[in-house]
Design a protein around this nucleic acid. Structure first.
Lengths: 130, 130
DNA sequence: TTCGTTGCAAACATTTTGCAGTTTC
DNA sequence: GAAACTGCAAAATGTTTGCAACGAA
């Protein structure tokens, strides 16, 4: 992990991600912070997301319509992606998901570090809109 | 599902995907078929992947380094993605994974159609290379 | 003959990057 | 003061699309 200065903007990006459960894309973060940080640039958002990701403070939970979606809640949970509106929702586990590993044939010479479980379908709003 | 002509090139793309377990990207499909179909274009590969996906003959199993990776094996199974070399490998389930659904809090008003389970880590080749 | 399909190249959208100036420690 | 960070705009990347020609039924 490289030495870092915790800049105001990086802080702001991280705190924004911590404060929402919408799993936003870089673009949304940029637009949301822009009023408060008028000289913020999109490149900075991307650069900081990368740094935060390397530091395991943030993770990419899905790619929806070509956009990486981020989450600052690092405790293990899964996500639901609406195929219609692109919304990403949290799905918390009832049980310890290490159980999961027992369901799958894992080559023993592989080093499995993490996993990502995504459910797809239609959210309630989109269902009632149809 | 729209009416279709099963063109030679669509066939070729589908058969190539059926014949490999490397979960290739559009680019690899293009380069692999190019010698046999010298007038093939990359746009055609993308267009056909989309059609095949709509027809549930093919699915996108992961996005690795910004590239969509495809699989023509539609029976339920998961994948392992090597963070170093980007290789995508099959992981077959020991048990019926519908069990999986019981482990997760699912909002009952959601319509869950499918899920995608991806494991990340380092493959054996990359491990021994390090 | 009618549509679906294709090559080509231009257009798109998201993300990355080089550089010169700024901030943080 | 050194090293990290940033704005800006240009570049890179992967994917999509318009159009005229082509292919399949």
């Amino acid at each position: 992990m490289r030495t870092q200065n915790y800049s105001r903007k990086r802080q702001a990006i991280y705190e924004l991600l911590m404060s929402t459960d919408t799993h936003p894309a870089a673009d949304w973060i940029y637009n949301t912070l822009k009023p408060k940080y008028p000289d913020l640039s999109l490149g900075t958002v991307y650069r900081n997301l990368k740094v935060l990701e390397e530091n395991h403070m943030v993770r990419s939970v899905a790619v929806v319509n070509g956009c990486e979606r981020y989450d600052a809640r690092m405790s293990q949970h899964s996500h639901f992606v609406c195929r219609r509106c692109g919304k990403v929702e949290d799905m918390f586990h009832k049980e310890d998901m290490s159980e999961l590993l027992r369901c799958v044939t894992i080559a023993k010479d592989h080093d499995v570090e993490s996993y990502n479980l995504i459910f797809y379908g239609h959210c309630s709003e989109c269902l009632s809109a149809e």
